[in-house]
Every structure is written in structure tokens, then in C-alpha cells.
């Protein structure tokens, strides 16, 4: 039961992008198309699940004073591993994703989940958290990517050669949407929409609106650990 709960929380209730607002740099950088968003999401999900499991397994050995360097070593190892293996054995995938893989090292979702979850939970639960958060990340990137690609290029491509929508008749693409400002505009609008939706739903159910757990200072683990 607990396993299931940790798995699904990343999708909506604690979505890393829309609720925790983590990993904004890759979010803005790679969401220019749906294919990119899905590719980045899959790569992050894999690294996140693996690093979560390893960090959870070594959580009792690693002294708290050097935990961050240890986590970074573990994460960087997995990222390099994925990069090399993909390059050698899945060259097509690597050709379209190669650019984003090194970006995963600095994706703060991974370190955030290591510090906030894997360091205090069992291997099994950490794996569930990693997969759930990764899927939530993929979902969020796909939503943003879909909006930006549709508005900015007028196309929608699921994968390299699988176009869903090739051309919208009578629609001139707004190039701004696939440039950097478009990323901020799309992310901001979707965030606002999500918050509004969540507030409306909570109101209708007669509940108070829950603040995002990790943005709430009372629950912040990082300060407590330092003491």
C-alpha cells in the first residue's frame, strides 16, 4: 500500500514540476518539442530510479557530513553509464537525446529526491519514489512540450518519424513559443492553470488547499539535517 502511494504521488499530488517546482532548467531547455520532452523524461526516470535505490542502500554507511559529495558521485556515475551504453548500443536514441544526458547531472530533482526521500527510506520505497517522480516529470514535460510545439512549430511529433500532426491548416506558428521566452510563458500559464484547478477541486470538496510540501518551511528537511 505504502509502495503504491509513493509511486503515484509524483504524478499529481507532488508532481516535481508543477508542485515541487524542481528541475526548472531542463524543463525550460528541452520542452521545445514533444519528442524531446519524452526522451528527457525517460532518461531522467531511469537515472532517478537507479540513483534513488543505490543512495537508499548506502544511506546507513554514508556519514551525513560527506553525504552530498557521495550522492553526486553516485548520480554522475549513473549518468555517464547511461550515456556510454546508449551511445554504443542505441545510437539512434543517443543521436536525439545525447545533448540532454549530461544535463541530468545538474537536474536538482535527482539530488532533491536523494536528499529528501532516498536518504531516509528503504530501497523498495525509494525505487517507487524514483519511478513515480520520473513519470511525473515525463508527464509534466510532455504537457509543456505539446503546448510549445503545437503553438510554436504547428507540428506534433511523438518520435523521430512518427508525426501525429504534421501541419495545421491556416495556422501560422508563433516562433516565440519555441524560443526561450516561450518556455517561461508556457510553464507559467500551465502552473497557474494547475493551481487554479487544484484550488477549485479542493473548494468543491470542502477542503483547504494543501501547500506544496517541499515549499513549506516547516517540513524542510535540509535545514534540520544541517544542525
Amino acid at each position: 500500500m505504502r509502495f503504491y502511494k509513493e509511486l503515484v504521488k509524483g504524478l499529481w499530488a507532488q508532481n516535481p514540476i508543477f508542485r515541487l517546482v524542481l528541475g526548472m532548467c531542463p524543463t525550460l531547455a528541452v520542452t521545445t518539442s514533444l519528442a524531446n520532452a519524452i526522451g528527457m523524461g525517460v532518461a531522467v526516470t531511469f537515472v532517478l530510479a537507479c540513483s534513488n535505490m543505490v543512495i537508499s542502500a548506502i544511506r546507513n554507511i554514508v556519514p551525513s557530513k560527506v553525504r552530498i559529495p557521495c550522492y553526486v558521485v553516485v548520480i554522475a556515475t549513473f549518468v555517464t553509464l547511461v550515456d556510454r551504453v546508449m551511445n554504443g548500443f542505441a545510437p539512434d536514441l543517443h543521436a536525439s537525446l545525447g545533448l540532454f544526458i549530461p544535463l541530468i547531472v545538474v537536474n536538482c530533482i535527482i539530488l532533491g529526491r536523494a536528499e529528501g526521500f532516498a536518504a531516509r527510506n528503504t530501497v523498495l520505497l525509494s525505487a517507487a519514489d524514483g519511478v513515480g517522480m520520473g513519470l511525473g516529470f515525463t508527464l509534466a514535460l510532455s504537457i509543456i512540450g505539446t503546448c510549445r510545439e503545437l503553438l510554436g512549430a504547428g507540428t506534433l511529433t511523438l518520435w523521430k518519424d512518427v508525426p501525429l500532426i504534421e501541419h495545421i491548416p491556416g495556422f501560422t506558428p508563433i516562433a516565440l513559443m519555441i524560443l526561450a521566452p516561450g518556455g517561461f510563458i508556457a510553464l507559467g500559464s500551465i502552473l497557474a492553470l494547475m493551481n487554479n484547478l487544484q484550488a477549485t477541486l479542493a473548494k468543491r470538496a470542502g477542503k483547504t488547499i494543501p501547500p506544496p510540501v517541499h515549499l513549506d518551511c516547516r517540513h524542510c528537511v535540509i535545514c534540520k539535517w544541517g544542525q
Binding site: 548506502i58 554514508v62 560527506v66 558521485v73 556515475t77 555517464t80 553509464l81
Partner: peptide
């Protein structure tokens, strides 16, 4: 401990 972890990571890579 940090050295051991780095050694394992290095060997793996």
C-alpha cells in the same frame, strides 16, 4: 568512506 565510494564508481565506469 568517500574514497571507497569514489573507487567503486571509478571501477564501474
Amino acid at each position: 568512506i568517500l574514497t571507497i565510494i569514489c573507487l567503486i564508481a571509478g571501477a564501474l565506469l
